[in-house]
């Protein structure tokens, strides 16, 4: 394959537009990153066993805290989820989900509120499928950490996510928040 070299003048105060690349460049970069993430995930698991989950969880949590700093603080779970959906964007597109027999999306259990989230578009899932790795592995803990970090930042309460089911087109997760916990 012939590689096209970009030649031009570079001044310290500007980045030449042509270095931004085109769709093919982005696709190549995305595939390399996916492969890199996949092999990093399996290497982490090989070296640190279940500790890999904790490492990725912590990385996700940091991302969640960082992203949520831009969001308005609220104690309304629905509003917080809407804002988190906007920040996560189309690459982690999720919606609230409930079984047909349930009236509302949220259920209260003592001081805990539970909501089921259906993640439809997910870069993590695509990365795992690109590299032939099983779902529910360490990389899935990235979203776990992200949601927990974002919830903690926006609502100032403790949250946790459990993976209910994973599939090739969507994954169902349960977000539990504890009002009294911090």
């Amino acid at each position: 394959m012939e590689i096209e070299e970009i030649r031009g003048t570079f001044k310290p105060e500007l980045i030449p537009k042509e270095t931004g690349g085109d769709l093919d460049d982005y696709e190549d970069a995305l595939h390399v990153l996916m492969k890199f993430m996949g092999s990093m995930s399996s290497a982490l698991e090989q070296v640190s066993g279940r500790g890999a989950n904790a490492i990725v969880y912590q990385a996700g949590k940091r991302m969640g805290h960082e992203s949520a700093k831009m969001m308005d603080k609220t104690d309304n779970l629905e509003k917080a989820l809407d804002e988190m959906g906007d920040v996560l964007g189309h690459e982690f597109y999720f919606e609230k989900w409930k079984p047909s027999g349930q009236d509302s999306y949220t259920t209260q259990d003592g001081d805990q509120v539970v909501v089921k989230l259906l993640f439809m578009d997910c870069v993590v899932r695509q990365t795992l499928r690109r590299t032939g790795l099983p779902q529910k592995g360490p990389l899935c803990y990235l979203l776990y950490g992200y949601m927990v970090g974002a919830v903690e930042e926006v609502m100032d309460i403790k949250g946790k996510i459990d993976i209910d089911h994973v599939g090739p087109n969507a994954c169902l997760k349960t977000l539990t928040i504890t009002w009294s916990g911090k």
């Binding site: 995305l30 439809m120 578009d121 695509q126 090739p168 087109n169």
Partner: peptide, 12 residues
């Protein structure tokens, strides 16, 4: 149904 993106598909 909502068909999830499959960015792992290599267009080339």
């Amino acid at each position: 149904i909502h068909v999830a993106k499959r960015l792992y598909i290599d267009r080339k």
